[in-house]
């Protein structure tokens, strides 16, 4: 065998390495509870039941748990996303009627790779190929709000039910808000040059082999986990402090069910607050434990993650101010309805 071929085969093999690591991941994840007990109670030899031990245990357990989940899920999402692209999504949405288009755009918004720095070319590309404004908005609302980091953190810290509630209410908001914006016929509030734009021929997708897809999964892990791990640690550290030291039911008086104003207030605070899901969700999970209502917390998280100031500033290039305010208003109202609904159900 020539040296070159050997190196080539080795490179191929390395691409599949993540799949081989899966059992190790599972062993670590399944034994995390025991490992944490051993570290906190045996090695550190801390007494059970004190504020400090409670906080430390929470931190030592949750940080590796969330990071393990993030790594695995983002790796899988990276592979899944390599089958989707804005170009393909655009093709799927062309010529769809308003309501069907909104449903499809919101669902595709979850799986299509999207970065807020590409929001403008994406918006222009959609509008230019005749996709209605309302359908485009459904995509632009769902894509950042229902992101994999938020879903993983909700799953890890709250359980699958809350993660599912978040995804389905997020979809509901993206679909209805886009539909409402479509019905309002607000094309006059899009900057004039947008509709005069002549875009070049649509590009074909690159053909990818499966080992390239695994590589894009790895790149997603490097890119996303590399960026959010510090927020996860800070968020869980604050959450651990709240968990151990804040008295039970402390939050009930101002973030509880009885305080009706807490839902609109948390949306108002959430919009300008720009934090990523990784930092905000661990803190919110600790607040819920101390008596904050689920609907209020959900509304707060959605406002923080889904409506971000930097994205509005980017979108200002193509949208006039009244449309930006309508966008915030419609999505904000949707989030509030979800908040009130969940406070009255649970």
């Amino acid at each position: 065998m020539t040296k070159k071929l050997e190196i080539h085969l080795l490179k191929q093999w390395i691409n599949y390495l993540p799949l081989i690591l899966l059992p190790a991941w599972y062993l670590l994840y399944a034994n995390l509870h025991r490992l944490t007990d051993g570290l906190v109670y045996t090695i550190f030899d801390l007494p059970m039941g004190t504020h400090f031990t409670e906080s430390l245990w929470f931190f030592v357990f949750e940080v590796p748990k969330v990071l393990l989940l993030l790594t695995l899920i983002i790796f899988c999402v990276g592979i899944i996303r390599s089958y989707f692209s804005p170009e393909r999504t655009r093709k799927a949405l062309e010529g769809k009627s308003l309501f069907t288009g909104n449903v499809m755009a919101a669902s595709l918004g979850i799986v299509t790779p999207f970065c807020s720095c590409s929001a403008i070319p994406l918006f222009l590309g959609f509008i230019e190929s005749g996709i209605p404004l309302g359908v485009t908005f459904s995509f632009l609302i769902a894509a950042p709000m229902i992101n994999e980091v938020a879903v993983v953190l909700l799953f890890g810290l709250f359980g699958w039910k809350t993660a599912l509630i978040y995804v389905s209410t997020g979809l509901f908001i993206a679909i209805t808000a886009g539909w409402v914006i479509g019905r309002l016929h607000l094309e006059k509030w899009v900057e004039g040059w947008v509709y005069e734009l002549k875009a070049g021929a649509h590009l074909e997708d690159e053909k990818l082999s499966f080992s390239t897809r695994i590589k894009s999964g790895l790149e997603a892990v490097k890119d996303i986990v590399g960026k959010v791990w510090i927020y996860v640690i800070i968020g869980i550290a604050v959450g651990a402090g709240v968990h151990g030291y804040v008295p039970q039911d402390f939050m009930a008086s101002f973030m509880g069910k009885s305080a009706w104003y807490s839902v609109p207030l948390s949306v108002l605070i959430g919009i300008p607050l720009y934090s990523n899901a990784a930092g905000i969700i661990p803190i919110v999970s600790a607040l819920i434990e101390k008596g904050a209502a689920l609907g209020t917390a959900l509304a707060f998280m959605m406002a923080v993650i889904g409506l971000s100031l930097p994205e509005m500033i980017i979108l200002r290039k193509v949208l006039k101010m009244p449309l930006i305010f309508t966008f915030i208003g419609v999505v904000g109202a949707g989030i509030m309805i979800v908040g009130f609904l969940f406070n009255s159900i649970f």
Binding site: R90, C115, S118, P121, L122, A199, G200, L203
Partner: peptide, 22 residues
């Protein structure tokens, strides 16, 4: 310039264009 970028048919940035071909 976003108008010029769009003229290449690109919907995701960054992109590399070699002798006017993406």
């Amino acid at each position: 310039d976003i108008v010029k970028i769009m003229a290449y048919g690109v919907m995701r940035t960054p992109a590399l264009v070699l002798d006017e071909k993406v």
